[in-house]
Design a protein around this nucleic acid. Structure first.
Length: 627
DNA sequence: TGCCCTTGCGCG
DNA sequence: AAAGCGCGCAAGGGCA
């Protein structure tokens, strides 16, 4: 046994690393008996973009920690591997680890699923430290909340990686690390001590972070459950129709590179996405002083997709007009290119992508976020990209959306009787706004009423309405004023929330930070938006939890998209699941009925894909394919 | 070369 | 008095 004595936060810590061939499983289970909560960490070979799903990915060490003791197991020793698997598989044992790298690794590499028995200290840290600037990696948190020893151990290990680097000393840090994580000896004391301290820190952080979250136990329990579900979704991943992906990729690639090449040629070296393109256009007929299109945040004319057509209003020379048409072609395929490449870059050898679903990835609202690829922003206007994703064999996609959930959250939180009555009566909230403004002597159409309603949710004002609705500024201000007058309870609610200059508390007593503008003043007008977005997020999680605990169908959730659950349902069960899922997503919220409706996703050939049959028909018609 | 900012674009 | 919110991703380009 190699035993190292060190400290963390000044307290003594013992790190034991059994030598291969001498491992005593009985001793191991005496250190980690059933029923405990243990720190968990793994050390791997260097991770590339596909991480756990890369054929090159391997685990080298796995570490478990009780309060002041860590045991570092070497996984190349069959006895230690067996003991690690057995402890992980003990359903009475829970684990604490930072981020989901350890949980995913144990599932994918060791074949043991601990997703429902893990506490993620990164999630706790996100709830405890809500400012965007806060660092939340294990090393920083440990230094800040416990002591500097882990950071020192990390620095010592990195210094050792430079010793292991065979080439010149002035190599890139990333290359040295890549090499080091795979090359360092499992006998190296600096490696073993660092590894052991990681696990001890994760265990210690649970007790330190929980009070700092300021969250009630019920919320913490739901969040732990959700993190487990999110990890399961990532582990399973999504099946990709690679033929479709390849075809779309080719189309996007061909269209964009042709346009790009032609623009480069015509402009003598200016790229399609270069900020210099505005200058070039100025020399070929565009007078930016007369520009009526949108401006960028930096105040320059925007060449975004919807603005390109406005360039035709100028007297362009021959080269200028050709560049404008090529730019339109480029913008028309830019999203498809980005999204196809994104899926391709994350496509693992199992024919799937494994996106990260971060349970509270949005810093200021705790909404879920998605990456690798992001499943929350695939186009609906051109749904072909969504159609690349197909269900497991024998399954069908079903999507269930909340109806206008954010407005209903506002109505319930504000106790706004006009809105609540309209919802109860099955009426239309946007028409209600039209009628209310008419009563105040202002005539608007339903689209404007809808925009005005969403400005409330988003904390916007007259200027935004003026720009979005294309109505005179004075009219827009009048609409906003009348909206405030007619919805007294919503006005009172936003004024009440605007008193909070530090943080707001959501319906489940989650603390959300008030954000600051560039002058450091609190943007209190955004507080209603934060409460609403976060509230809607909690309602979706509530429905998912109900679906899991009451219906036993939590596993069917393929992906959550803010106000929508996409389910993957065995063909034979579709009708029953639709009924149960609608039950889960229909409930009372503060006297406001929350409703939802399901759509079964089947394409024009009767196959299920992640697109609606209506959209599939439209595309089929456009392509001349019989539906 | 890596890092950071800006721009553009999709979703809710 | 007025203030549109939250994400992820890729590319260009300035800077050290």
């Amino acid at each position: 046994m190699r035993t190292f004595t060190t400290t963390l936060g000044g307290e003594p810590v013992q790190v034991d690393a059994p030598e291969p061939g001498t491992f005593d499983p009985e001793w191991f289970r005496l250190v980690f008996p059933s029923g405990g909560l243990y720190g968990l960490d793994v050390e791997s070979t260097y991770m590339d973009a596909l991480a756990q799903w890369s054929p090159d990915f391997g685990l080298r060490l796995i570490q478990f920690a009780a309060e002041d003791t860590a045991v570092v197991l070497t996984l190349s020793d069959p006895d230690q591997l067996l003991a690690a698997r057995a402890l992980l598989a003990d359903v009475t044992v829970s684990f604490a680890s930072h981020g989901n790298m350890d949980v995913l690794s144990t599932a994918v590499v060791l074949g043991v699923d601990i997703t429902s028995r893990n506490i993620d200290t990164l999630n706790l840290a996100r709830m405890a430290f809500t400012a965007k600037a806060d660092k939340r990696d294990l090393k920083d948190l440990t230094t800040r909340l416990i002591g500097p020893e882990l950071e020192a151990a990390d620095a010592a290990l990195l210094a050792h990686f430079w010793d292991l680097w065979p080439g010149r000393r002035n190599a890139k840090r990333s290359d040295v690390e890549r090499h080091g994580w795979s090359a360092v000896s499992t006998d190296e004391p600096r490696y073993l001590v660092y590894a052991g301290l990681d696990a001890v820190a994760a265990r210690a952080l649970v007790d330190i972070l929980i009070p700092l979250t300021g969250a009630p136990p019920a919320l913490l329990e739901v969040e732990a459950w959700l993190a487990g579900r999110a990890n399961r979704i990532q582990i399973l991943g999504m099946l990709v129709d690679t033929d479709r992906l390849t075809a779309l990729e080719a189309e996007a690639q061909e269209a964009t590179s042709r346009a790009e090449a032609r623009i480069l040629e015509l402009t003598g070296g200016v790229k399609a996405r270069s900020p210099k393109l505005q200058d070039w256009l100025a020399d070929h007929g565009v007078n930016w002083d007369c520009w009526e299109g949108a401006l960028t945040e930096g105040g320059k004319p925007s060449l975004a997709k919807d603005n390109v057509a406005l360039l035709w209003d100028f007297e362009l020379d021959a080269a200028g007009s050709e560049v404008v048409s090529e730019l339109a072609a480029f913008r028309g395929h830019q999203d498809l290119l980005v999204k196809t490449k994104g899926v391709r870059d994350h496509l693992a050898s199992d024919g799937r992508v494994h996106p990260v679903l971060a349970p509270n990835g949005a810093t200021t609202t705790a909404r879920m976020s998605s990456s690798g690829p992001n499943f929350q922003n695939f186009s609906k206007r051109d749904p072909r990209m969504r159609g690349v994703f197909v269900p497991e064999p024998g399954h069908v996609f079903v999507t269930i959306d909340f109806d206008q959930v954010e407005l209903r959250v506002v109505a319930g939180r504000a106790r706004e009787p006009k809105m609540i009555d309209t919802i109860l009566a099955g009426g239309d909230l946007h028409q209600l706004t039209v009628d209310e403004l008419a009563a105040a002597g202002i005539e608007i159409d339903r689209d404007t009423g809808k925009m005005a309603n969403f400005l409330i949710v988003y904390g916007g004002g007259g200027k935004a309405l003026h720009e979005q609705a294309g109505i005179p500024l004075e009219d827009a201000y009048a609409i906003v004023r009348a909206h405030r007058d007619r919805y007294e309870q919503i006005s009172a609610w936003s004024q009440y929330l605007a008193l909070e200059r530090q943080a707001v508390r959501t319906i489940s007593n989650r603390r959300l930070p008030v954000t600051l503008d560039k002058h450091g003043n609190p943007r209190v007008y955004a507080n209603v938006n934060y409460d609403t977005q976060s509230g809607a997020r909690e309602l979706l999680v509530h429905a998912w939890l109900y679906l899991d605990l009451v219906c036993g169908l939590g596993e069917l959730v393929w992906y959550p998209i803010h106000d929508e659950l996409v389910l993957q349902v065995p063909e034979a069960d579709v009708d029953a699941v639709v009924a149960q899922a609608e039950t889960a997503m229909r409930f009372d919220f503060l006297g406001v009925p929350i409703s939802a409706s399901a759509i079964v996703l089947v394409d024009e050939h009767g196959d299920s894909r992640w697109m609606t049959s209506k959209l599939a028909e439209k595309i089929a018609a456009a392509n001349g394919v019989a539906a």
